[in-house]
């Protein structure tokens, strides 16, 4: 059974890229275009991991992260964003990992694997 992950990003191109790339890694990739949609999906379904963009119109990633950690304390979340400096501000706080957006998805993929592996142990 493949792990179920939810990717939250407001850009369609990026959602599609994640779906294909992470799908190739054998993951069951689900998508949400906003924080609100992500929370709605989480209510209905069980996921193994969330990849969350920080800067989104409407509810931003930080707010989504806060709500997720309130309700699903053990659900791993990877923050993904274009800003380096969020890494300092939020990196060690609440989220499980922090990845800077890049066309090279290697870092994201290894981070996902690491987190899923530790969860399995």
């Amino acid at each position: 059974m493949s792990e179920k992950i939810l990717v939250v990003d407001d850009e369609e191109g990026i959602r599609l890229l994640y779906k294909e790339e992470l799908g190739d890694e054998g993951l069951d990739v689900h998508l949400a275009a906003s924080g609100e949609e992500a929370l709605a999906k989480l209510e209905k379904d069980r996921f193994d991991l969330i990849v969350l963009d920080i800067k989104m119109p409407g509810m931003d990633g930080i707010e989504v992260l806060r709500r997720i950690k309130e309700r699903w304390k053990n659900l791993p979340v990877i923050l993904s964003t274009a800003y380096h400096h969020y890494k300092q501000e939020f990196g060690t706080w609440a989220s499980d990992a922090y990845v800077v957006k890049s066309s090279d998805l290697k870092e994201l993929k290894t981070t996902i694997k690491d987190i899923l592996n530790t969860g399995r142990k």
């Binding site: 191109g13 790339e21 964003t81 890049s102 066309s103």
Partner: peptide
């Protein structure tokens, strides 16, 4: 610069990511 990098990084990610595929 901060705003610009955000606006540029996202489309760049799509361009580069799909080019890789």
């Amino acid at each position: 610069a901060a705003t610009l990098t955000h606006e540029i990084r996202n489309p760049l990610m799509s361009i580069g990511g799909f080019a890789k595929r």
